[in-house]
Design a protein around this nucleic acid. Structure first.
Lengths: 239, 239
DNA sequence: AGCGCAGTCTAACAAATGTTAATGCCCGTC
DNA sequence: GACGGGCATTAACATTTGTTAGACTGCGCT
């Protein structure tokens, strides 16, 4: 059942059977969330961390004027709030963008891992560092890329991340977000989001319908995005 | 000499003398960097991590069209590339924005800390988690705040972070960035950056001259920024 | 004192992006 | 099969942001 987590952590470095057992031992109960439900509430102080087994979720903040900004998209195998293990207080919420199947792991058991399993600790730490690397890439995209390039970059990133956990289908993947939700990812108005998606379609690099994205020309998409997957640390090496 | 680091880590949780000694023992040699010099090069695979003792530095990426985006500002007490300890390959550069005095810590000794000092390991991990939290706040600012609010937020954040390491002077702090460099922080053109700074001045909440920022009306600045320091985890509690 | 450079600031115009509103389409419900 | 709601799409117009160009300012250097 934890296969997505093993695939995610295992892409960076070998994961021993003992370590897999430790992770499995840290898990407690499972739960399902419906679309739109908060998986973790902003301001809460969870005593467990949440692993996505299936579905798509997002971190977000809401401003006083009602504007919402997603700060990350989380795919199966991601710990959506592993940072809360040490940060303690959630400064943002996490919402299910599709029906989500998750499993919770107690902070007390994660703490035990940090006391007894240094290598596994480093892999969990690494997982949050990749999170940070993705954040930095988003900052660059928001600040200095054209909106078309930003969207292309996001498509590249999601495709690669979903591929790692075997959630792609050939050159296609499921992307359940509405255009309004996509707008909250890129920081655009809905109308402009629609224009930008139209631009990518016109370039002929993706088709996008029924919540399914198909990459028609990976090479050119990557060019438009200036996509370099180094930041995802997909190289398997001692950590 | 490591005082800024102790202040930085110590703001989140108590730091024992033994832990301070471990940190001191991880340090090797010091070095000075001039303005504009790369402290860490993009694409490199450092075998040490860099702690700022004095000065201001920034992480950045450069795009093909020459556009540059800063993804973080680093103040004294910050490990600018602690993530490279596990990420291995730098996917971005780090540049000195003022003359910088830094000290290097060997990855082999950091690794030893993860093997032998779980609590200190968690504090170092936490340090990178706060980094991530700051990134998320920047994403929100870039995506959904007005530019004036974004700048106000940045001023609030820098003031608070500098205060922790005793680098403020009353309500003032030194900010050596030119407006062109500030533009690369916010993702704006130089001309518009100038307009936005002008707006903050017109509101009468800050004065900004000679690379010195003075907060004239903290309350109103915070309001404009919708600044909530929760994400900086400045609460001292067991981690 | 004069020169030259880097940085700040303004103006005028161009392009990108937001807002408001209307249309059409798909799909589930009654 | 009609109805209604959510979503995608488009249009027209407003606002924000970028571009280009130039003036101005402070400061180190000769």
């Amino acid at each position: 059942m934890l296969e997505p987590l093993y695939l995610n952590l295992g892409q960076h470095d070998a994961l021993s059977d003992a370590e897999k057992a430790l992770l499995a031992g840290a898990m407690t109960f499972e739960r399902h969330f419906a679309i739109g439900q908060d998986i973790v509430a902003s301001g809460s102080r969870p005593t467990y961390s949440t692993l996505i087994l299936d579905g798509l979720a997002a971190r977000y903040k809401v401003l006083e004027n009602g504007g919402r900004q997603f700060t990350s998209l989380q795919v199966p195998g991601d710990f959506v709030d592993l940072h809360a293990f040490l940060l303690k207080t959630m400064d943002h919420g996490i919402v299910a963008l599709s029906p989500c199947h998750v499993i919770f792991s107690d902070h007390s058991r994660l703490r035990a891992i940090t006391e007894e399993a240094p290598h596994l600790t480093r892999l969990l730490w690494l997982d949050t560092l990749v999170d940070g690397a993705i954040h930095r890439e988003w900052i660059v995209a928001m600040g200095r890329r054209s909106k078309t390039s930003h969207l292309a970059h996001l498509v590249c990133e999601l495709f690669v991340r979903l591929q790692v956990v075997k959630r792609t289908n050939g050159m296609s993947f499921h992307l359940p977000l509405s255009q309004a939700e996509m707008a909250d990812v890129l920081g655009l108005s809905v109308v402009h989001m629609n224009r930008v998606i139209g631009a990518l379609r016109k370039f002929g690099v993706v088709s996008w319908a029924n919540h399914t994205v198909t990459i028609l020309d990976w090479h050119r998409l990557q060019e438009i995005a200036e996509f370099d997957p180094t930041y995802l640390s997909m190289m398997r090496e001692p950590r």
